[in-house]
Design a protein around this nucleic acid. Structure first.
Length: 295
DNA sequence: AACGCGCCCTGTCCGC
DNA sequence: TGCGGACAGGGCGCGT
């Protein structure tokens, strides 16, 4: 269930721990977590020896940026091969955790407990970045600046950015009649929301999850925008929600689960009115709501 | 062509 | 006690 707050938690941990390190070696144990066009060989060839310059998050994706392999030479021959050009520009490693992916730095005590390590990045300080994933729904992609720019075009607006205004959200929702919970899950519209925070935000905003997106008026959109920002911010502060699988880069669970108000609380009393929380299923996923507080 | 559904994968839990 | 089936749900590919 890693969504925006969980990924942000990992990114902040990683940023402190591995920025400025370089890659000594790459090991892939389960090759099926690599993107279809990415071979173990190309990944290893591209990353070995490279300096980690930045760690970022985009939606639910971890983005590790690497410096060019060689310093840019002033006058490279016109016949520079594609591989040379790639080595002369930044590289971007994208990690999507899927359902059960974990990124843990190897010196954390919890690292030894990882049972499904799919890939390891050895660093020059002797530590490793471990990618662990029981179900292997996660994915690792390698990008050039160009392919990353292309990939990013398919990701929607960041809900914590200044650009995510009530007007913008209202405008976007008016183009679709899909249930607003499903609407929120589509990463091409808003990036970073998954089923847990979609449900939590809709409860906070007093909006039923099965309402068509285009039924939201501007007041609904304003409440939803604020609810999304609040719940994501609160969850980041609590270092994410752990149901069973999520762990931060130190291998530790998040603290937000006890503060969920509807998700996973079927039959339990609504925190606002006391009525039992209902679970309904649509779009192949559970939605949780208070039938009284959400309209 | 936006939308909905099934699939990928494994661990856990529940009912018989 | 054991086992089969449902369920978890991110993201993608496909059919309508």
């Amino acid at each position: 269930m890693p969504e925006l707050p969980e990924v942000e938690t990992i990114v902040r941990d990683l940023r402190k721990r591995v920025t400025g390190r370089s890659v000594a070696a790459v090991h892939v144990i389960k090759a099926d977590i690599l993107a279809p066009d990415l071979s173990v060989d190309r990944l290893a060839r591209t990353l070995t020896g490279r300096l980690i310059t930045r760690i970022d998050r985009r939606g639910k994706n971890i983005l590790i940026e690497f410096a060019p392999a060689r310093a840019e030479s002033s006058n490279v021959s016109a016949e520079t091969s594609a591989r040379d050009r790639a080595a002369n520009s930044e590289a971007y490693l994208l990690i999507n955790l899927g359902m059960t992916g974990r990124v843990v730095v190897s010196d954390a005590p919890a690292a030894t407990a990882l049972e499904h390590v799919a890939a390891r990045l050895e660093l020059d300080d002797g530590h490793e970045i471990l990618y662990d994933d029981v179900r292997r729904f996660g994915r690792i992609e390698l990008h050039s600046p160009e392919s990353w720019a292309e990939r990013e075009r398919h990701l929607g607006i960041e809900p914590l950015s200044d650009a995510f205004t009530a007007d913008r959200l209202h405008d976007l929702t008016q183009r679709s009649r899909t249930p607003v919970r499903n609407w929120l899950l589509d990463q091409r519209r808003v990036a970073g929301i998954g089923n847990i925070y979609a449900n939590e935000a809709l409860f906070r905003a007093g909006i039923r999850p099965d309402r068509p997106a285009n039924s939201l008026d501007s007041a609904d959109a304003a409440r939803l925008r604020q609810a999304l920002r609040d719940v994501l911010t609160d969850a980041i502060r609590a270092r994410g929600t752990t149901f069973s699988d999520f762990r931060d880069a130190r291998g530790e669970a998040g603290g937000f689960e006890p503060r969920l108000e509807v998700y996973g609380r079927e039959g339990k009393p609504c925190v606002k009115c006391g009525r039992p929380i209902e679970r309904i299923v649509f779009g192949n996923r559970s939605a949780f709501l208070c039938p009284r507080c959400q309209r």
